[in-house]
Design a protein around this nucleic acid. Structure first.
Lengths: 197, 197
DNA sequence: TAAATAGTGTACATGAATGTACAATATAGA
DNA sequence: TCTATATTGTACATTCATGTACACTATTTA
């Protein structure tokens, strides 16, 4: 079926993910991405269509490797407070580790592109909204499991959780040691009674 | 003393502040900023030295006009819980208003430039750290005033407050109606016993 | 082995962006 | 009015960046 590509498409997307994560969208020109992948721009357009299209693939890959993806595996059978506690603890540790890229690709892209980039802005908004929806779902699971009181405000808790998630990544860029990050996360979870340790 | 500038330097910085706030640092080239100001690049370099230098002036102006600057005016004579409650409420309302620029210039620039831009990165880190320090100071004032219990963890509270501040701006970019923002802020303040209403 | 096909590279035309050098301009004060 | 000087504009030499057209190359399968 014709000539085979001289590069591994999947590995290429991973490389691009790291570039975008680190440098942001606008800083990654087609020229610079092509040089990173050691292909010509022509091959780039042929393989990926456009920078926007590749961005979407890279963001998908980002979600797949994120320590926050554990939140997506929770359901009515999951001990919810333990899921929150363990996952946030794990995120703090991953994010603060020396060789980790700082910040969250989604947070970075949200501040760079939301309400700015005509094509990508809605895509990014949707990604944020689906995280929010997942937290609401998890809180509701906790209510069904009687771990969380029926009277708790689901939306408020989901907002606080999403804010905590974003904030851990954000703070990892500035003072950013694991102790501070976990101090914030632990106290937040405790103060809304979602901690279990 | 020579020819007078055809533009108002202070208004120019304000214009640049809005540009940077909205579009981010890299998206504001010297060319585009010069066009916005209706001066040539030559005049730009003459008047401001460099894009980096102007950025710093613009960020200073941003702080001066931010609704969060009320936090800087708190001291041992200030009712601290009321300060937190009122200021966060005000921020939610300002940020969600239709004609407001979305997001926080500092948050945007932190995700874009921290750990990336050699010259501006330390500058931005310092700005974040001084906000953190101010929150610690306010919490300590609250302790002296006996509004906040002596046993509270100052650092943890300051982290939570800074995270809330960042988060309000961040969320204003996505679902972003005032009700949601305030729901998050109110519940956060209540859950750490810094609410007074 | 030949054709079909998928991937690659060169080239083009164009505009954005940078920073500096030097000449032109306008104005305040002597 | 003259002159010192702050400000402005033109020009230059480069590099980055975009997207497409078309020719070239390698590989599969009929």
């Amino acid at each position: 079926m014709g000539r085979v590509a001289k590069f591994d498409r999947d590995k290429a997307i991973e490389k691009v993910m790291y570039e975008l994560w680190q440098k942001g969208y606008e800083a990654c020109s087609v020229k610079s991405l092509s040089e990173t992948l050691e292909i010509t721009r022509s091959s780039f357009y042929h393989a990926f269509g456009s920078r926007e299209a590749l961005f979407k693939e890279a963001l998908t890959k980002y979600f797949e490797q994120s320590p926050a993806k554990a939140f997506n595996e929770g359901n009515k059978q999951t001990p919810i407070k333990a899921l929150f506690t363990d996952t946030f603890k794990h995120i703090c540790s991953v994010v603060a580790s020396a060789n980790s890229l700082k910040g969250c690709m989604l947070v970075n892209c949200t501040s760079e592109l939301a309400n700015i980039h005509p094509d990508l802005s809605p895509y990014i908004s949707d990604a944020n909204k689906s995280i929010m929806a997942q937290f609401e779902y998890l809180v509701n699971c906790g209510k069904e499991r009687k771990e969380i009181t029926e009277h708790a405000n689901t939306k408020a808790l989901a907002l606080i959780l999403q804010n905590l998630l974003n904030g851990i990544y954000m703070m990892s860029k500035v003072p950013g040691n694991e102790d501070n990050l976990w101090l914030m996360a632990e106290q937040t979870l405790k103060s809304v009674d979602l901690y279990e340790g």
